[in-house]
Amino acid sequence: MACAAVLIAVIAGAPFLLNEGILRLATECLLLLTMAQMWNLLAGYAGLVSLGHQVFIAFGAYALFLTSGWLEVTPIWVLPVAPLVAAAVAAIIAFPLFRLRDAYFSIAMWVFAEIIGAFTMKSQAVGGTSGVPLATSKLIDFDWFEPTMFWLAGGLTLITIAALYKMMTSSFGLGLMSVRDNDLAAMSVGVDVRHNRFIAFVLSAAGCGLAGALSFMGNLFIAPLAAFDVNWSVYMMFIVIIGGIGTLEGPILGVIIFFGLRELMTGPLGLSGGWYLVGLGIIAVVVMIVAPRGIWPVLRDRLGVRLLDVHRAAPRPAAATMLPGASERVTG
């Protein structure tokens, strides 16, 4: 509790202390952290790797831009549209995609993102290849724009992490984690695998939609090449993989490494963005080979620290006792 209060105070006060450049960077960090947490919810907890999550970012962002333009209201007031649209899309495409497993799901997601991206580029109603500026940007109070963006991003991040923590300690979260660990075992103790996966997928899409909308709102401009860029998935994946898949702290550590390396390589070392991605990729590949669960679990065990550790007991026998109503089916 005290910890949360301190964090809220820090986020509330930061805009008064930091200069605009650093504030923008911090906003970017927080939004990418939220996206990574959402990707992690799907990959780390539900066992579904999406290589097409950029489609939800794009849906959220375009929904915000278009609705704000039609209604002629400040984009902040129509922000709720972004997660709703992304969630609705996810709920619909879940039907064909959930028939596929593992890599098939991953690549089919990617193909879906490519298709939507291609249609977006063709549709003049949404600006085609050249994209659209935020029509209502004149309604924005630019004195407070950067601080507001930061507060929104900070608030979103805190709420996301708190909600995920709450979720993972609930019976839903435990059911989800047992799905990741073992489909059959989870099903045999009465976890509705498909249902849990579906909810994780929709929530993950909604979160990415909102974070994506905020991200492009900060740019005041959106174009399909940026919105449907597969690099969104690359970033989310690298952050999660390096930090620690299936943990809440992992993506936080991952984001620190992601931006730390970026600032170091493209700043003092003067390297291009391409080499930065190469460096990040090499770190990710090495981590995957040396510590497949990511850096955080290794640090946690070495140092013995517990931050947001979701109590995770062994999935097999423990799952049965933790899920109310499940054990009867086994014994009965």
Binding site: G47, A103, S106, G274, W275, L277, V278, G281, V285, M288
Partner: peptide
């Protein structure tokens, strides 16, 4: 032979990102 079927997927994806950007550079 990793027990997690996602490991080879993530690893080869990582390699693809490295290769792509090395070629760009």
């Amino acid at each position: 032979t990793s027990p997690d079927p996602l490991s080879p997927l993530l690893l080869t994806f990582g390699v693809s990102v490295i290769l792509r950007n090395v070629m760009v550079e």
